[in-house]
Design a protein around this nucleic acid. Structure first.
Lengths: 193, 193
DNA sequence: TCTGTTACGCAACATCTGATACGTAACGTG
DNA sequence: CACGTTACGTATCAGATGTTGCGTAACAGA
């Protein structure tokens, strides 16, 4: 067994570079050359660790997913359920550079998913987890709600977050961000009473 | 002045063909060849009426915009303001094939707009009109609301519609559609009391 | 009918793309 | 110290793409 390298680590590096390329250039501009440039290697290495460009795109999506998931857990830690719910929803919005970039990646993949079944599955997977997290928090924060009402509230909150995210993405002014926070708060007030 | 043809009509035809190509193939797959095929002409004609491919994409976006605008006006006609509000919001969702396709085009352009200033402006324009329409209807339907509350309600409704649209787009099952309608109705109940 | 202009099909081109094939250097193992 | 395997840089290729330029046919106006 010669020349041993951390396979997973390399793949993660490449996924991160792909992620950066998508952020800077859009998915169209994310060519093998662009990724290699950002990963600080040659195309040879990319092809060594991934079978195709599409596999690298999926890896970038998963990478963004893992990042976001970790942030959500941090946001929940040590908060009451209603505080945690608000924190999680706000954490999901593109309010700073990191999350703005993350949203660019999401949006890019949504569009790409329209014509790629594997990406659509990837998205549905993420959405289920995300829905489960929010509905759990809603149930904790408003124990008097029926199961159906909890689901309904979660659906409504998730839709609001996604819509606001897109809006901020297209008009990333400070005003739009403040407005988004206000909208989340009124939505929460409606749900939690 | 020889061989006179309706310039605008030709451009509209090409825009419609571009629209169809985006629907079927995604924006990446929308090549000059693909558009020409759908328009029933050769690439020569495309280049005769548009300076570049990007111009044709913008034209397709405007075409979709015009279509949607016309549908909205039809939906309002002869309804009370609160009925009209509901009709307009539902009309904005991807609940049938035509509107599903339209949403594919929107989503595609949102993603594209992330790296194209001209498309972002195009979107903001559309969003302003759309926001104005909804907030006007809200003001009519709930005259007791303050100006600020009307704006807030409109923001919330628009975000909900956009979020639901994306969700239906990714999971176009009948269940998701019914769920979306229910979410719109609860949002309306909240706003209009 | 003649003429100048417009419409647009056709073919060619330079560019860029993802993928492959090959060569070499690094290194764990015997 | 070989030896065999892995890592990956380099060169190359076939295919696709947007754009350009040329040639021709159609037609309004004189």
């Amino acid at each position: 067994m010669p020349k041993v390298v951390d396979h997973d680590e390399r793949r993660r590096e490449i996924a991160a570079a792909t992620w950066r390329a998508i952020d800077e250039l859009g998915v169209d501009g994310t060519t093998m050359r662009a990724i290699a440039e950002r990963a600080g290697c040659t195309i040879g290495r990319l092809n060594h660790y991934f079978d195709s460009r599409e596999d690298m795109l999926v890896a970038a999506l998963r990478y963004a997913h893992v990042r976001a998931g970790a942030r959500m857990l941090t946001a929940i830690e040590g908060r009451s359920s209603s505080d945690a719910l608000r924190a999680v929803l706000l954490e999901a919005l593109p309010l700073d550079d990191e999350r703005y970039t993350e949203w660019k990646v999401w949006l890019t993949f949504w569009a790409q998913a329209l014509n790629t079944e594997s990406l659509r599955n990837e998205h549905r997977q993420r959405y289920l987890e995300w829905h489960l997290l929010v509905s759990t928090l809603v149930a904790d924060a408003a124990p008097s709600l029926s199961k159906v009402a909890v689901q309904q509230a979660a659906d409504s909150l998730l839709a609001t977050v996604d819509g606001l995210g897109i809006h901020v993405l297209m008009s990333p002014a400070a005003g739009a961000k403040r407005q988004a926070i206000r909208t989340i708060d009124t939505a929460l007030a409606t749900v939690l009473g």
